[in-house]
Lab assay of single mutants.
Amino acid sequence: RERTTFTRSQLEELEALFAKTQYPDVYAREEVALKINLPESRVQVWFKNRRAKCRQ
């Protein structure tokens, strides 16, 4: 699998949801995934990595 490159608009959507909740449920992830045209699994991994970045 190729590394996913997020567009600015995708990142804005993801960061907006992250500001609301660092642990979105599957419904919130699927909703944003549809909105930004990415698989839910990519959204899930983005949140995992974003939380790790936050802890550093």
Score class of each variant (00 low, 15 high):
residue 7 T to M: 03
residue 54 C to A: 13
residue 6 F to A: 04
residue 50 R to L: 01
residue 7 T to N: 07
residue 49 N to F: 04
residue 12 E to V: 14
residue 53 K to H: 04
residue 8 R to M: 13
residue 22 Q to G: 04
residue 22 Q to I: 07
residue 28 A to E: 10
residue 55 R to S: 08
residue 17 L to H: 02
residue 23 Y to Q: 08
residue 54 C to G: 15
residue 46 W to L: 00
residue 24 P to T: 01
residue 44 Q to A: 14
residue 44 Q to P: 01
residue 44 Q to I: 08
residue 33 A to P: 00
residue 33 A to I: 00
residue 27 Y to T: 14
residue 6 F to E: 09
residue 42 R to L: 15
residue 24 P to Q: 00
residue 13 E to T: 13
residue 1 R to K: 14
residue 54 C to K: 12
residue 46 W to N: 00
residue 5 T to M: 10
residue 7 T to W: 02
residue 13 E to K: 05
residue 2 E to Y: 04
residue 33 A to Y: 00
residue 47 F to P: 02
residue 32 V to G: 00
residue 47 F to M: 05
residue 36 I to W: 09
residue 14 L to E: 00
residue 46 W to H: 00
residue 48 K to F: 03
residue 11 L to V: 09
residue 22 Q to M: 15
residue 26 V to F: 10
residue 41 S to R: 11
residue 8 R to V: 08
residue 40 E to R: 09
residue 42 R to E: 13
residue 52 A to Y: 08
residue 22 Q to F: 04
residue 23 Y to N: 07
residue 28 A to N: 06
residue 7 T to P: 02
residue 38 L to C: 14
residue 40 E to W: 03
residue 47 F to Q: 01
residue 10 Q to K: 02
residue 13 E to L: 07
residue 19 A to T: 12
residue 20 K to Q: 07
residue 44 Q to M: 08
residue 54 C to H: 14
residue 9 S to C: 10
residue 34 L to A: 15
residue 1 R to G: 09
residue 33 A to K: 01
residue 15 E to D: 05
residue 26 V to M: 09
residue 34 L to P: 02
residue 55 R to M: 13
residue 3 R to C: 05
residue 24 P to R: 01
residue 36 I to N: 05
residue 24 P to K: 01
residue 4 T to C: 04
residue 15 E to F: 02
residue 50 R to S: 06
residue 41 S to F: 06
residue 29 R to C: 09
residue 37 N to D: 06
residue 9 S to R: 11
residue 39 P to L: 05
residue 14 L to K: 01
residue 46 W to P: 00
residue 36 I to R: 01
residue 13 E to D: 05
residue 23 Y to E: 11
residue 20 K to H: 12
residue 21 T to K: 06
residue 14 L to Y: 03
residue 25 D to E: 07
residue 33 A to R: 03
residue 43 V to H: 03
residue 2 E to Q: 08
residue 23 Y to F: 12
residue 50 R to Q: 15
residue 20 K to W: 03
residue 55 R to C: 06
residue 19 A to D: 13
residue 4 T to L: 13
residue 34 L to V: 13
residue 21 T to P: 01
residue 16 A to Y: 15
residue 22 Q to C: 04
residue 29 R to H: 02
residue 31 E to A: 12
residue 3 R to N: 15
residue 15 E to R: 02
residue 40 E to M: 13
residue 41 S to N: 06
residue 25 D to M: 02
residue 35 K to M: 06
residue 14 L to S: 01
residue 53 K to L: 12
residue 5 T to H: 05
residue 12 E to K: 11
residue 35 K to H: 04
residue 26 V to H: 12
residue 8 R to G: 10
residue 32 V to H: 01
residue 5 T to R: 10
residue 56 Q to K: 03
residue 51 R to L: 06
residue 34 L to T: 14
residue 5 T to A: 10
residue 26 V to I: 13
residue 36 I to Q: 03
residue 56 Q to P: 14
residue 12 E to W: 07
residue 11 L to D: 10
residue 22 Q to S: 08
residue 49 N to K: 07
residue 3 R to M: 12
residue 50 R to I: 02
residue 27 Y to R: 14
residue 39 P to K: 09
residue 7 T to Y: 03
residue 3 R to Q: 09
residue 32 V to S: 02
residue 10 Q to P: 03
residue 51 R to W: 02
residue 28 A to R: 09
residue 46 W to G: 01
residue 41 S to K: 10
residue 16 A to P: 01
residue 16 A to H: 09
residue 47 F to A: 00
residue 33 A to L: 00
residue 16 A to I: 08
residue 12 E to T: 13
residue 14 L to W: 00
residue 37 N to E: 13
residue 3 R to I: 15
residue 4 T to M: 13
residue 17 L to Y: 02
residue 40 E to C: 12
residue 15 E to M: 03
residue 24 P to V: 00
residue 13 E to G: 06
residue 5 T to G: 10
residue 20 K to N: 04
residue 12 E to I: 11
residue 40 E to Y: 06
residue 49 N to Y: 08
residue 20 K to A: 09
residue 35 K to V: 02
